[in-house]
Design a protein around this nucleic acid. Structure first.
Lengths: 336, 336
DNA sequence: CTGTTAGCGCGTTCAC
DNA sequence: GTGAACGCGCTAACAG
């Protein structure tokens, strides 16, 4: 069924049907009512592929995240999706699995769909995506970090500074034998940034870094459970395990509890991200607070501004920092 | 940039470029190499919107889930996405927020994109979507439950039987003052099914149902923390809280621990779904094991079979059950 | 307020 | 193995 069929049935032209479906165009109220009624009765669904080709507006924005399974990223995706819904745009979601090559492949596949904006979770990108993005001439937004050399717009925070701030605060609490537990390789540059922040904070206090790793990202609760062994093997005198993320920290705490070790007391543990579990777990987990939803909303706002700016002037790159502050909780409390 | 531009540059026709991009067509190897080289150099990205319009194959499948934030659904989405990737199809993901009306709106919006298959998380659907789906003439797969009156294909398990099995097992362990904690309304019919399963198991043992609720879905850890109060207010003698999901159970356990109550011992708690947290938490949480990834993979396989069947014969509805078995863990262990 | 014309950029279907 | 004509279903841009 095509617009033509609706039109013929009403003795009008397809163009009028098309206009009746866009509420902003000028169509006689009676005509519009008749069109909508006919569409409803016949169960007609417009072909948006044809519409997109004709209008060269796909109605898509694309977002790439390392892992949809991570509640943080899915919250960002959700918030962005809601923001775009208000602009009647849909979201194409891609999962890079912390893999640059897969990211590049997805960028290519998504660009073929002519998205009107693209959001990348800031990471070490495959350099080949840059010319592709430049050619697409659409807003590009990197989220979840503050890259040294941004592609264009940014919504995020410095993972490095945030982790440095947390570790500095913990050192201030009196901890010194702090061991870092994170991913092994640098596929996840947010993880690498956090590790760097840890090292800086330790160095600033005159302490040597103590690094342990658990393999490729993402860092899971199960990794945390195994990770405690790794930490103790390398640094048996550890008094605090600083984890790259909250789920990992939860796993470490669980492993301690299985051993009958008090957390805190026998061992302290910190995380990163302020996942729900960090607030609910017993003990509650010391972490860095991030509002994942806010990142999505801000990204949606930037897309709106970019569209507006295109009409007016040269759209300047927008760098929008979001808060990332340490939050000390029971898991690192010092006894009495 | 269009195919025409590539073609002119090589002194060939656009049609040859098009064929060179589909590896199955007959193009001289030298020609193909030249085309691919030119495309690479110029950074040409084919316009899939035009391709879809012309071939009437969108390359999309659409999936609607109640909540992308739920690690279970995101795992299903991920597995389905991988399965479809092998068929070079992309996944349009929609979040219904446990809302039938929103689901209907999304079905309409997605059908306009001409997906080649649609996957719905089985729920009470808005009846208006049925004619729309029928008209679309594409495979429809309902997942995560076994609906009484399926639309077409199904991959799932009976939430009712699964919960009944779990409760029966717990009654077998010697529990009788079991209180159910779940969502309030029936927006989430999987939750309603589980509640029904609980009631049946209790009735079968001659026990009266003890129902408590925590508001609309999804059931979060925070809901669990508050939920314990609700349970104790209504049924102070509760010895086991049977929760509609693992995160909710985790919240209840956390609330117990904050009161200094031993779990198990002073209170037992069960969940549903076998989320990672159920295995890692201390105590580990008794639950019903579901393989969320398998549901996605099976759905992907059904899409493949449906495409094959279309050529051969009338595609019969496929009902593919997946396992959902009780798993007793420490959180409901009987002392001694 | 409504209709007509002319593409949008590909892939299908023929020719050769 | 390659090219030319045509159409996919809709909307932009113009008439009227």
């Amino acid at each position: 069924m095509r617009m033509q069929d609706i039109a013929r049935r009403l003795g009008i032209s397809a163009m009028t049907v098309s206009r009746a479906l866009k509420s902003d165009s000028s169509v006689a109220p009676a005509t519009r009512a008749a069109v909508l009624k006919a569409i409803e009765e016949l169960g007609y669904v417009p072909n948006q592929i044809a519409g997109s080709l004709s209008s060269s507006r796909s109605g898509f924005a694309a977002i790439l995240v390392p892992s949809l399974n991570n509640p943080h990223f899915s919250e960002t995706v959700l918030a962005l999706g809601n923001a775009l819904h208000d602009r009647t745009m849909q979201l194409l979601i891609g999962n890079t699995d912390y893999d640059r090559h897969k990211e590049a492949e997805l960028v290519r596949a998504f660009l073929a769909r002519k998205p009107e904006a693209i959001i990348l979770t800031s990471d070490g990108h495959d350099p080949r995506i840059l010319p592709m993005l430049a050619k697409a001439k659409i807003p590009v937004i990197e989220i979840w970090d503050l890259p040294a050399r941004p592609i264009q717009h940014v919504v995020g925070f410095s993972n490095q500074l945030a982790m440095r701030g947390l570790i500095a605060a913990l050192i201030g609490e009196g901890y010194s034998r702090i061991t870092y537990l994170g991913e092994a390789d640098d596929a996840d540059t947010r993880g690498a940034s956090r590790r760097l922040g840890y090292c800086e904070a330790m160095a600033a206090a005159g302490l040597a870094p103590r690094l342990c790793s658990i393999g490729r990202p993402p860092a899971t609760m199960s990794d945390g459970e195994r990770g405690l062994e790794t930490v103790l093997a390398a640094y048996p005198d550890t008094e605090l395990v600083a984890c790259v993320s909250d789920p990992l920290a939860f796993g470490v705490i669980a492993a301690c509890q299985r051993r009958g070790w008090a957390v805190p007391g026998r061992m302290a543990v910190s995380g990163f991200g302020d996942f729900e579990i960090a607030r609910i777990a017993v003990p509650a987990i010391t972490t860095v607070q991030i509002d994942a939803g806010q990142i999505g909303r801000e990204a949606g706002a930037i897309i709106g501004e970019a569209f507006k700016a295109r009409r007016d002037a040269m759209p300047a790159a927008i760098i929008r920092p979001v808060p990332a502050l340490p939050c000390l909780r029971a898991s690192t409390a010092k006894a009495g």
